[in-house]
């Protein structure tokens, strides 16, 4: 990569990135990105850790202890419960939908569902919350037309929120599972049949075990997505479900108690721990399934 070529003329922004490369020892091109991430991601992380483990100007685990007590603990548990329900519900529904699409003979249906899934999986946040509020909120179209309020329906409950979260979780599961279902080679089914296995025996001994890493990976991914979601819940004003993201936001903006910023940081630390755990489960599963379905 050592070149005698002169560097690019300065002043053209597009060129500067590549123009430096001739004299580089290889990784100079990656330097700006690494530096940027170190600053933009590193400094907040350090600040977060510092704040989480500092109370009254001294190192302490008091914030962490506080974040695992009372309302904060309730919120943390609430988030974990909601995410678990969404992850498992979304995984089951998404798998059925994916299987229905994959076994269909209509290519157009498959393309349509995959495209729609790509869109909907990214469709969290404010618009989603408002669409559901307009549908099933207190004055939503279906709520008023069907008089659901009288039957005790509330969108702002645990199950209401779960219903809304599934809207972006199911498509995400479809996106995760379709490649895995496609990766089930027809030879495996035929080889199983050839060895005398029934359809059920094929699924029990081969199909389901082969899909399991992908399915579990999907569950974990859905859990992470629901666990981190804030905008959707925040935009559904009036939600009474305790969620850790709402607690962090309240503490940060001083909505509840002044001086709880550091507890918010400790809560954030809890969240990162949970998210990290989730990834620690996900990555090995993903590797294994990639090996099987190559």
């Amino acid at each position: 990569m050592a070149e005698t070529h002169p560097a690019a003329p300065a002043g053209l922004p597009v060129r500067t990135g590549g123009g430096n490369r001739p004299r580089s020892t290889g990784w100079t091109g990656a330097l700006p990105l690494l530096a940027f991430v170190a600053l933009a991601f590193g400094i907040p992380t350090v600040a977060l850790l510092g704040g989480a483990f500092t109370a009254d100007g001294a190192p302490s685990t008091a914030n962490l202890t506080a974040s695992l007590q009372g309302a904060y603990l309730t919120a943390l548990i609430g988030s974990v419960k909601l995410s678990a329900v969404v992850a498992i519900g979304g995984a089951v529904a998404g798998t059925f939908l994916a299987q229905a699409v994959v076994t269909s003979r209509f290519r157009a249906l498959r393309e349509a569902v995959l495209t729609a899934s790509g869109v909907l999986a990214n469709f969290g946040g404010v618009p989603l919350a408002f669409a559901w509020t307009a549908t099933l909120g207190n004055s939503g179209v279906l709520t008023t037309r069907l008089a659901l309020g009288e039957h005790g329906w509330s969108l702002y409950s645990f199950w209401g929120l779960a219903l809304v979260y599934l809207y972006f979780s199911v498509p995400l599961m479809v996106l995760v599972v379709v490649p895995a279902l496609d990766g089930l080679r027809p030879q495996w089914r035929e080889a199983a049949q050839n060895n005398g296995a029934s359809a059920w025996q094929f699924w029990r001994y081969v199909g389901i075990p082969v899909l399991t890493p992908s399915l579990l990976g999907g569950v974990v991914l859905l859990f992470g997505g629901a666990f981190a979601a804030y905008a959707t819940a925040a935009a559904m004003v009036g939600t009474v479900v305790p969620l850790v993201t709402l607690q962090i936001a309240d503490a940060l903006t001083g909505n509840v108690l002044i001086g709880h910023e550091n507890v918010a940081l400790a809560l954030s630390f809890d969240m990162i721990m949970v998210a990290g755990l989730v990834m620690a489960v996900y990555l090995p599963l993903q590797r294994r399934s990639a090996r099987w379905l190559r």
């Binding site: 690494l34 991601f41 600040a47 977060l48 992470g224 954030s268 969240m271 990162i272 989730v278």
Partner: peptide
């Protein structure tokens, strides 16, 4: 050899919930 490093760096933001990222930024 930098590839895994880049991959990790570019996956981190998916692992770390945005709200905790904001918490860090606002602290700074």
């Amino acid at each position: 050899r930098l590839r895994p490093v880049l991959e990790v760096i570019c996956t981190l933001p998916l692992v770390v919930p945005p709200i905790t990222f904001v918490a860090g930024i606002s602290t700074v």
